[in-house]
Design a protein around this nucleic acid. Structure first.
Lengths: 295, 295
DNA sequence: CCTATACTTTAGTTTTTCTTAATTATATGT
DNA sequence: ACATATAATTAAGAAAAACTAAAGTATAGG
């Protein structure tokens, strides 16, 4: 037995519920004619009339009354199925996809605070340079540093950052001019657009010609740059948020005459519907409160 | 929350059940590509993958597994609803729409036999010249005298009939020629094509010229013609089946030299699905057995 | 490594569905 | 009683959805 066109059943449901083709048409954003035709097609398919057409309204025939509950039930089952898909499959585990350097320098030092406040939520942190495939359930949420334009994903701005010239105690002398001191040290470049812009801006400010510019030790991971600067390997250009702990404990110093706002910002990223999950909301709030504290 | 295209859910159901797009395509009489596209559209709409594509087969993801039972349930509810429509709303009452003359002359004299054999089935006989609207549930079944071509309805041939020249005892004398006697009596015409044809044929056989032909008492109801002939009002041209009881009891006589097969026949008529109802089947069998007995 | 199989992709066609506009029917107000 | 307004219907063309055909991709199995 072949089913009637499914759309006609949907229209039937609305029209029956509202007792009017006109209202059903409005609710479904189509014309009256579309409803009329679909209902007629359904009636033709079933071989019986479903509505008694009165002048201002329509009402169900015995057959219509009989059919309606089934159709209602079927559609609500579709909805239930789809709703179930959007629900959190593991509400007690939060899978985070975070950039390795941000994870190492910012998130891990603070994460015990989140664990303390939400000890019912197990955390799994997946450090990765690329955004994972959320559809596969590989992660619940991502923290990204970028421009906020993430295909098909919801994103919420967490905050910006600044590029700072960072060195270890004793490497630079604050009273002497920077330009001269710069050439005495290895310069360490984090390979990222903002770092490159920052170095270039610094050279411009110090009137260092392109030809004179010193070469860099390039490291493709900000966390390692932090390590390198910490261990006295040279001078780095780093984001403030990545060296917060070291600034607080005065393990690193910032050259006071220079700073540059990053073009990129931090975003919390994930499929729209993930943001209604309690565990995600908890993490988002925690994250936001920590982003406010800007050293 | 908007539902996905319903057709894609249908395809999903088949593909999931068969574990193969190819087989689903065959089952649904479409190409593989159609299935692939619909599934893809569904996945896009839901924002998650439903199948893991392996080389020779596909299998459901966790989400697919979660969705399937709901979709299955919804579709079976549609089917249940539609099936319920085709069921007999009152299996203990048989509503018959019958031509008034056939009801009076043939059906009513025999109907007690049916009642006796099926005392669980209440009968309602609706004598009407026009076929009722079956869609409105006005009747379960109709008995018609015609050509069997009933729009959108199933019909089963019951049998034919003959037109006979009928008179009351003593009105005609079998030994004398008919032609002479005919002009001594009132002729009664049942207004129907077969009766008109029969009279015309009789006149032709008796070589009565159109100009000579006597005029008729026209009665637009065969049952009344029977009454008129019975009460000696004149000579009638009637269908054999309508005067069976009177022939058996010799209340009426048939002129032996004449008969004509009717062009019309008797049909049992109704919507296709009514014929699977037990009460209809019972009546059909009873009717057929009584149509075999042809006096 | 080749072949056969099953899914995917794309472009173009077919089918279905929808809209517009004219039509019918009837309840409601004048 | 008559005009008016509302709601459903119908028909024809327009738009959208679904499908096919054909070429592509990937991989299990000989």
């Amino acid at each position: 037995m072949s089913l009637p066109p499914l759309k006609s059943l949907q229209y039937f449901m609305h029209a029956a519920h509202l007792g009017s083709f006109k209202l059903a048409a409005e609710q479904l954003f189509v014309t009256q004619a579309a409803i009329s035709q679909q209902i007629r097609a359904l009636e033709a398919h079933l071989g019986c009339e479903l509505f008694i057409r009165e002048t201002r309204k329509v009402k169900l025939t015995r057959q219509g009354e009989q059919l309606l509950p089934h159709v209602l039930g079927a559609f609500s089952q579709f909805e239930a199925g789809i709703k179930a898909l959007k629900q959190d499959p593991s509400p007690n585990t939060l899978n985070l996809s975070v950039l390795p350097s941000f994870a190492a320098c910012w998130l891990l030092p603070k994460i015990d605070d989140f664990q303390k406040k939400h000890n019912d939520i197990k955390l799994r942190i997946d450090p990765s340079d690329q955004l994972v495939d959320f559809e596969q359930g590989e992660a619940d949420l991502g923290i990204r540093f970028g421009q906020g334009n993430y295909q098909d994903l919801h994103s919420e701005l967490l905050g910006g950052d600044q590029m700072l010239l960072v060195y270890k105690q004793g490497m630079l002398e604050e009273n002497k001019p920077l330009k001269a001191q710069l050439f005495d040290h290895q310069l360490i470049m984090d390979v990222c657009p903002d770092a490159q812009r920052a170095w270039q801006l610094l050279f411009d400010e110090l009137l260092i010609q392109p030809a004179q510019q010193p070469s860099f030790l390039e490291i493709d991971n900000a966390a390692l740059v932090v390590q390198a600067v910490l261990s006295g390997q040279g001078i780095g250009m780093l984001r403030r948020r990545l060296i917060e702990p070291q600034l607080v404990h005065q393990q690193l110093h910032v050259w006071q005459g220079f700073e540059l706002m990053c073009e990129y910002k931090y975003y919390l990223v994930g499929p729209e519907h993930h943001f209604s999950w309690p565990k995600v909301d908890a993490f988002k709030s925690w994250l936001q409160s920590h982003f406010c504290e800007f050293v």
